[in-house]
């Protein structure tokens, strides 16, 4: 069965509400974009869980891992001045 063809893999992202983010749901196999969208509908939205679907070939996704997380996200570690609470406001300041 070596040459048995199970189609390339796709990752599925679904928007559940208008204006909401597209969230990763899982993956599936399909021969082309159209089949990937139809399979995503049948697999991930059988109970009306979505209003819009993205499918992306799995091989197109680049990702970090937990192992390189420490180094990779290091640049943000010492920059608390990026958050509002870093700043001292004069007592009594309003709406700021």
């Amino acid at each position: 069965m070596k040459n048995d063809n199970q189609f390339p893999q796709w990752e599925v992202f679904i928007q559940t509400k208008n204006g909401g983010p597209f969230e990763h749901q899982g993956s599936l196999h399909a021969a082309d974009k159209k089949m990937a969208l139809q399979n995503a509908r049948d697999l991930y939205t059988r109970r009306n869980e979505g209003r819009s679907i993205w499918v992306v070939p799995t091989e197109c996704i680049a990702a970090t891992t937990a192992d390189d997380a420490a180094d990779f996200f290091d640049p943000a570690n010492d920059k608390i001045y990026r958050t509002p609470n870093f700043y001292k406001m004069p007592q009594g300041t309003k709406n700021l």
């Binding site: 069965m1 070596k2 048995d4 063809n5 199970q6 893999q9 899982g26 993956s27 599936l28 196999h29």
Partner: peptide, 15 residues
């Protein structure tokens, strides 16, 4: 799909 993340594809699993 979850099982495939261990590097064994579906054709092999079905076999």
């Amino acid at each position: 799909s979850a099982a495939e993340t261990f590097g064994i594809d579906r054709t092999e699993m079905i076999a």
